[in-house]
Every structure is written in structure tokens, then in C-alpha cells.
């Protein structure tokens, strides 16, 4: 793939009139395809040739979904190469980070929802309240790296309007600032593709996204922390009574976290910190030697 250093070409001024590559990303169930369809429909109305390609379906709810929208006088390839997207619209924060390298260096516009949807496989520790392996980058850090763009709590805005599902339309409204066609025309496009009962909320969400302004820097940090505060440790303790233990090794071999170990003829708690309080050892000890205490979150 051809690298695109900043000095390689002269950036064309916004708004683009000759065509554009827009990458819409998110996770299953968020409406990635709905907004890419809206963009494609709008470009068609303006007389552009449009190609759109997507990956969906396999992802189900919560998995990766992405959609490439390309429009120009003439479009050949249906997909956008790395470093050639003029805009990246991300409906989920980690997905925004995943697709960053597709943005055109020095020129691409970055639009993202800061809302995190933590996938199960990011939860490396099964301990309740444990920190996940979710992306640590803050929105301010990422937006600062790009020529133009914004990160907003679109889900929060849509929820305040009455339906969290309209978060995708909030981002579409934000995108319309760069793809500056008449608002009435955008409303017509939205009306044409959303279900009848949701036209009102989608229009409101579009307007809210379009009218959004970045809060003051200090306020921004407070409003959208990228890393959730870690939950306090639970008061879990596991104890083995050596006088009652007969050393059958059931608890040692069946503990999912491998907390327990044999020490001579009896089992002992080797790594108490790894205990998640699942009580497998307590239930399966035939000799009542294991006691798990789970006091819950300390007050």
C-alpha cells in the first residue's frame, strides 16, 4: 500500500465536492449500516456514483461491524484502503481506535462516540470489579492527534432525548457539519430509511448532533472519562481447615482460578488474591473443610 506522508500531496480544502471515502464502524446492533445507508443515499441524491460495502451478520450483537462508503464522479473499488478514509465515524470507542490507521494522515476527520462497550474477552480477570483490558487512550489524546474531529457522548445525548438507539443519528448529525448539505435534505433522507415511528426522535437526534459544541477542556475530561474507575475489592476469603481436610485434591484440581494447592497431605490456599468467590471448592469439598466468605462490596 502506498504510504501517504503529509508532504506527499496538497490537501484539498473542505468541503469536498469531488468525492469522499467514509468509514463507519461500530459493534453489532448500533446502527452502523443505517447511517452508512443515509450517507450513500445523500450522495446519490447529489448525483455521485456510490459504492458501499460492509461486514455484518457474523458479528451478531456486540461484535465488530464496519461499512465502507465511497462516492465520487466514478468509483471503482468498493473498499477504502488504509490511510485513504476522509472520515471515520465510530459508534463505539474501542472500534474508533481499531480503525484509526484507515484515516488519511493529516487530513482525515475523526468522529467518535466516547461510550465504551466492553467486550467479554477484554475481561481478563474473572474477579468481580477487576479492571478490564479495554483501551486506555482518552478521547482528548486521540482527537488531538487528528487534523479535525470530535469525540462526543452520543449515546448520552440520545438517551437524554429519549432513546439511546438514536446515538447513530447523533453522529450522523455531527458528520453533516463536514458533509454540509441542506439540513432539510438530510431530514428527508432520514425519513426515507428509518421506521415511521422513530422519525421524530431521529430528526431531533440529528439536530442535536449537528448543534453539538465541544465543552471547555476541563469540563470535557470530567464528562467523559475514558477509563472507568476500578471497583473496590470485594471482601472474599477462602479458608481450609487442615483438621478436616483429607487431601482428596478435588478443590485443588477443580478451582477455576487455581487458588489452592496441596501442601503435604492437605490442601492450602496458595494465592488467596486470585479467589473470585465462586464457591466451587466449598460446594464440592466432601469434608466441609473449605469455607468461602463473600461479604460483598465493603460499605
Amino acid at each position: 500500500m502506498r504510504p501517504l506522508p503529509n508532504d506527499d500531496f496538497a490537501p484539498a480544502p473542505w468541503p469536498v465536492t469531488t468525492g469522499m471515502n467514509i468509514l463507519v464502524v461500530g459493534v453489532g446492533g448500533q446502527g452502523v449500516l443505517m447511517i452508512s445507508k443515509a450517507i450513500a443515499l445523500m450522495a446519490q441524491r447529489r448525483g455521485f456514483a456510490v459504492k458501499q460495502s460492509e461486514v455484518h451478520g457474523m458479528a451478531k450483537r456486540g461484535g465488530i461491524v464496519f461499512s465502507h462508503v465511497r462516492f465520487a464522479e466514478e468509483v471503482w473499488s468498493p473498499t477504502i484502503a488504509k490511510g485513504e478514509a476522509d472520515m471515520l465515524v465510530a459508534l463505539e470507542w474501542a472500534e474508533a481506535l481499531r480503525w484509526l490507521d484507515h484515516l488519511r494522515p493529516g487530513r482525515g476527520v475523526f468522529i467518535a462516540d466516547t461510550r465504551q462497550i466492553v467486550p467479554p474477552f477484554a475481561c481478563r480477570s474473572r474477579k468481580a470489579g477487576a479492571a478490564s483490558a479495554y483501551a486506555r487512550e482518552t478521547p482528548a489524546e486521540i482527537v488531538g492527534r487528528h487534523a479535525d474531529g470530535c469525540a462526543l457522548d452520543a449515546t448520552g445525548i440520545a438517551t437524554a432525548l429519549g432513546d439511546a438507539r438514536a446515538a447513530n443519528t447523533v453522529l450522523l448529525g455531527r458528520l453533516s457539519v463536514w458533509l454540509d448539505y441542506p439540513v432539510a435534505e438530510w431530514h428527508e433522507v432520514i425519513d426515507a430509511i428509518v421506521p415511521k415511528g422513530t422519525r421524530e426522535i431521529n430528526r431531533k437526534a440529528f439536530d442535536a448532533g449537528r448543534a453539538w459544541t465541544a465543552p471547555a477542556p476541563d469540563e470535557d475530561d470530567a464528562a467523559a472519562p475514558a477509563v472507568a474507575a476500578p471497583m473496590p475489592d470485594l471482601h472474599i476469603s477462602v479458608a481450609i481447615d487442615p483438621a478436616w481436610c483429607k487431601g482428596c485434591t478435588i478443590c485443588v484440581k477443580l478451582c477455576p482460578e487455581r487458588c489452592l494447592a496441596m501442601e503435604g497431605p492437605v490442601a492450602v490456599v496458595a494465592t488467596p488474591a486470585a479467589c473470585t468467590g465462586c464457591r466451587v471448592c466449598e460446594w464440592l469439598c466432601p469434608d466441609f473443610a473449605v469455607t468461602v466468605k463473600n461479604e460483598g462490596v465493603p460499605a
Binding site: W244, G247, C248, T249, P286, D287, F288
Partner: peptide, 11 residues
């Protein structure tokens, strides 16, 4: 502790 063998399911 009861009389049953180590690992006995009866416990």
C-alpha cells in the same frame, strides 16, 4: 471430621 474416605461423594 466424618469417617468417609477422601473424595467420597456422600460428603
Amino acid at each position: 471430621p466424618h469417617f468417609m474416605c477422601p473424595g467420597c461423594g456422600h460428603g
